[in-house]
């Protein structure tokens, strides 16, 4: 498996390309929560003129990009603890209001990382099986509350094991919540009828993606991801 990944590596999407795929799917007027890591790259790929608002669970509605040099403010940070800004028309709220937004169904989308996603949409991203404890943060609240949960992750583990599986083996974050998966190989929708392969990275085939996936993929209508040159 790892040999196969090495062979494929030139065709795998970069983190920025995955972020661009997600950004293309975030719609005008959506309020979106971004998890730590790869999701934080997404805002720079939102097409100019499209009004997507970002929510940060530590109390920011309308989170903007990192500050310009000299404009840093230690009282204005993201949930990932990076320095950020507030967009014009943004607002600050307290923690219970912030999570009321999440659990109350006001998040149009949450984009989170994951260790494992099951074919039924089970999300596993807070604790590894061999750890006695994890850092849950706001992941469980956001995952159960958001209207859509998009996952960004590498398609397989470093050892080449599938991270998209028929049934989860990792500790659960939230059951049946994931609606779409964006990896370095493909974009996959989670539907009541199973996983649907929507698009694959240029240079890969549907069989390549299926071989690296632990659950059946419906590839009847698969397209190719367009990536910037």
């Amino acid at each position: 498996m790892s040999a196969q990944i090495n062979r494929l590596t030139p065709h795998l999407l970069t983190r920025g390309q995955i972020a661009a795929c997600v950004a293309a799917d975030l719609e005008e007027d959506w309020l979106v929560n971004l998890g730590i890591g790869m999701p934080t790259l997404i805002p720079e790929y939102i097409p100019p003129g499209r009004d997507v608002m970002f929510h940060s669970e530590n109390g920011i509605i309308g989170m903007g990009p990192p500050p310009a040099p000299g404009e840093e403010d230690q009282d204005l940070i993201s949930a990932g603890k990076g320095l950020v800004t507030l967009i014009p028309g943004g607002a600050y709220v307290n923690h219970t209001d912030s999570f009321a937004i999440a659990r109350g169904g006001r998040l149009d989308c949450a984009v989170l990382g994951a260790f494992q996603v099951a074919a039924n949409g089970d999300l596993c991203n807070w604790r590894l099986p061999n750890q006695t404890s994890g850092s849950v943060g706001g992941a469980m609240d956001i995952a159960v509350g958001a209207k859509r949960v998009f996952v960004t992750m590498s398609h397989t583990t470093r050892e080449g094991d599938a991270k998209i599986v028929a049934e989860r083996t990792y500790p659960l974050t939230a059951g049946g919540v994931v609606t779409k998966i964006y990896t370095d190989m493909a974009v996959i929708a989670v539907t009541p009828d199973g996983l649907v392969l929507e698009a694959i990275a240029p240079g890969l085939t549907a069989d390549d993606v299926q071989a690296a996936t632990g659950a059946p993929l419906d590839s009847a209508n698969v397209g190719t991801i367009s990536v910037a040159a």
Partner: peptide, 27 residues
């Protein structure tokens, strides 16, 4: 979980006996 932590404190402050949440169900 972070939202549960915040709401458990709010509930205490509001004189309530608890609350029901979907957060962490099945975990």
């Amino acid at each position: 979980p972070q939202g549960t932590l915040a709401e458990r404190m709010r509930t205490a402050g509001a004189g309530l006996g608890g609350f029901l949440t979907q957060t962490a169900v099945g975990t």
